[in-house]
């Protein structure tokens, strides 16, 4: 296969990855790793480098739109970024000592969990009673809804912070945004309305991914020949996905993609167990 053919097919694949990532809310990075390893037989370390870049591009692109709407809780994001960046740097360090097959199996497991999380019942309720820490850290806020501004408060700050650290480790280790774990921390543990938790999670993914990306870049995981089609393709796909989301109801699509992603996850785990990475 020539470089030109490889690039064109990879751009198309990355475009689809960005589209699926944006429609399911999983992010483009998660789909890029199986695409590169299972379809193109690229070493998983190059795939992780490219996926991190896809996550950053996705997060920065989408976050700018959500911030404009005033849904993102910037203080909350900044506070939790302490946890995710410490986790991400730790994860990137552990990655050197982790066999690639273990990384593939772990990736499959996280992918299964993420697919299940996208289909969960979402938390719509805004808490009126928050914890003391939430008030001290100025995390309580409000967000716009069709019925006007809704105030919300947070609880279980410590619990949420711990899950965020784990999300950071996974992000650094596997090169993904760990959006599902981030939403679990905010939505399920801290009881934040899901619109706020998904947009704030997206906002944080860029910084979390950048914290481990600087380590991976210096370690030589980022190959320009892979990075270039992946970044452009994923961005294009995410852009189309965002446009589509305003026109169609993604529930059915989400189910189809989640089933597809479950198969991909099993494939990753199987290949990891067979020591194919």
């Amino acid at each position: 296969m020539s470089i030109l053919t490889f690039t064109i097919i990879l751009i198309l694949g990355a475009y689809l990855a960005g589209l699926v990532g944006s429609l399911t809310g999983l992010g483009g990075g998660v789909v890029v790793i199986p695409l590169l390893t299972l379809v193109f037989h690229v070493d998983i370390r190059y795939a992780i480098g490219a996926a991190l870049l896809a996550s950053i591009a996705n997060s920065s692109g989408a976050a700018s739109a959500y911030i404009k709407e005033g849904i993102t809780n910037i203080r909350l994001g900044m506070f939790l970024e302490i946890a995710t960046t410490v986790g991400a740097v730790t994860g990137a360090l552990i990655a050197v000592y982790t066999p690639t097959n273990t990384i593939a199996i772990l990736f499959g497991a996280v992918l299964l969990f993420s697919a299940a999380m996208t289909l969960r019942k979402k938390n719509q309720e805004a808490l009126t009673e928050g914890s003391k820490w939430s008030a001290t850290l100025k995390l309580d806020n409000s967000y716009p809804t069709p019925n006007g501004l809704v105030k919300y408060k947070l609880k279980n700050i410590g619990g949420g912070f711990s899950i965020m650290t784990l999300a950071g480790v996974m992000s650094g280790l596997l090169g993904i945004g760990s959006g599902a774990l981030k939403v679990l921390a905010m939505d399920t543990t801290m009881k934040i309305p899901f619109k706020v938790s998904t947009t704030t999670s997206n906002f944080m993914i860029g910084v979390t991914a950048a914290a481990s990306a600087v380590v991976y870049l210096q370690r030589g995981y980022m190959d320009p020949g892979i990075a270039f089609p992946v970044v452009l393709g994923v961005l294009g796909g995410a852009f189309t996905g965002a446009k589509l989301l305003t026109k169609i109801n993604p529930t059915t699509l989400r189910w189809i993609f989640c089933i597809a992603i479950t198969f991909v996850a099993i494939e990753m785990i199987y290949n990891g167990l067979q020591h194919n990475f």
């Binding site: 870049l53 950053i56 591009a57 997060s59 920065s60 860029g206 910084v207 991914a209 950048a210 990306a213 600087v214 870049l217 980022m222 320009p224 020949g225 990075a227 270039f228 970044v231």
Partner: peptide
């Protein structure tokens, strides 16, 4: 390309 990659990584840090 790698310079563009570097800029992409720097964007959230600049933020």
């Amino acid at each position: 390309i790698q310079f563009g990659v570097l800029l992409l990584i720097l964007t959230p840090i600049l933020r």
